[in-house]
């Protein structure tokens, strides 16, 4: 028994070391650095709360990027989760070649926010690109998607939404666990497809919806690739998300202390919103066997 335990510890040791070295250590270090001024070349100088005070009171770019990040999350998370649920629902139908469609819809998530995707996106949304070409055929004037501050956000929201594959797979698994008998009973009672979806499917998969919302929210607040590669944070900082600002402050402006303070503010916001979501979940998330447990 003891031998097995030792062997078990040995197996998990690489993971534990990895977490300690590459997660916990930077986590603690960044917190310590957030109270310093650190430009890489000289040792960090303790400055107390100055970084936090500066970003709260004197940094318009922080306020701008925070607003951009919140707007992005507000638009992108419901769109990705909603679209993933919609596609998963369609792919849950029994039809010929469904395995192919499931793989095909997952493909964008494998491509992710790569350089190739950024080039593709720039081509699609350029003034003389494919999207404007299609709009032109419909008699609509070309839109400066990448150069107009009112539209640039939508290009990166669309790229985020396009990578809905992982959320879709989780939804698909949840949909397949909804008992068939419930739909049969509802059909006998005369419920329409729409009623079945809203009254049976959605309530039964609320734990998975909740999980996906939390995960996608975290991803949205960490979004970096699309604005970095497609719009470079512009125009007029309209896509300058907080992750981009943290990167700039730390690795381009050599302000690691300030960059760390920004990271901790981002962490606090995500943690706060996650906490709020968990608190609200008691009103709209239903777990199987919940009532029995409570009794």
């Amino acid at each position: 028994m003891y031998e097995n335990k030792r062997l078990g510890f040995l197996f998990v040791l690489p993971f534990v070391l990895g977490v300690l070295l590459f997660k916990l250590f930077p986590f603690v270090m960044s917190f310590a650095l957030s109270f310093t001024q650190y430009d890489v070349m000289d040792p960090p100088v303790y400055v107390g709360l100055q970084n936090y005070r500066e970003l709260a009171l004197e940094d318009p770019l922080f306020r701008k990027s925070l607003g951009v990040t919140l707007t992005f999350a507000l638009l992108a998370v419901p769109l990705r989760v909603g679209f993933a649920l919609f596609v998963a629902h369609v792919l849950n139908f029994k039809m010929r070649g469904i395995a192919f469609f499931r793989s095909a819809f997952y493909l964008p998530s494998i491509l992710g926010g790569s350089i190739a995707t950024a080039v593709l996106w720039r081509f699609l949304f350029a003034r003389n690109g494919l999207v404007n070409g299609v709009l032109g055929m419909l008699g609509i004037e070309p839109v400066a998607w990448l150069a107009d501050e009112h539209y640039s956000m939508w290009t990166i929201v669309l790229l985020f939404t396009w990578q809905f594959g992982s959320a879709m797979v989780i939804f698909l698994a949840a949909l397949q666990n909804v008992p068939e008998a419930l739909y049969e009973a509802a059909e006998i009672d005369g419920a329409s497809r729409m009623q079945q979806f809203w009254r049976i499917t959605v309530p039964l998969i609320t734990p998975v919806i909740f999980f996906n919302v939390i995960m996608q929210m975290v991803h949205a607040f960490q979004e970096f690739n699309a604005p970095y590669m497609i719009t470079e944070g512009g125009p007029l900082s309209s896509t300058y998300v907080l992750a981009l600002y943290i990167y700039d402050q730390s690795f381009r402006f050599f302000n690691f202390g300030y960059g760390s303070a920004l990271s901790w503010v981002l962490f606090a916001i995500v943690a706060g919103l996650a906490g709020l979501s968990f608190w609200s979940s008691r009103y709209w998330v239903f777990y199987a066997g919940e009532k029995e447990t409570r009794r």
Binding site: R122, F123, A126, R127, A144, L146, A147, D148, E232, G234
Partner: peptide, 12 residues
């Protein structure tokens, strides 16, 4: 103009 360059697939 900058907006024109940006609209053509990247200001830079």
């Amino acid at each position: 103009p900058l907006p024109l360059r940006a609209s053509l697939g990247g200001a830079e």
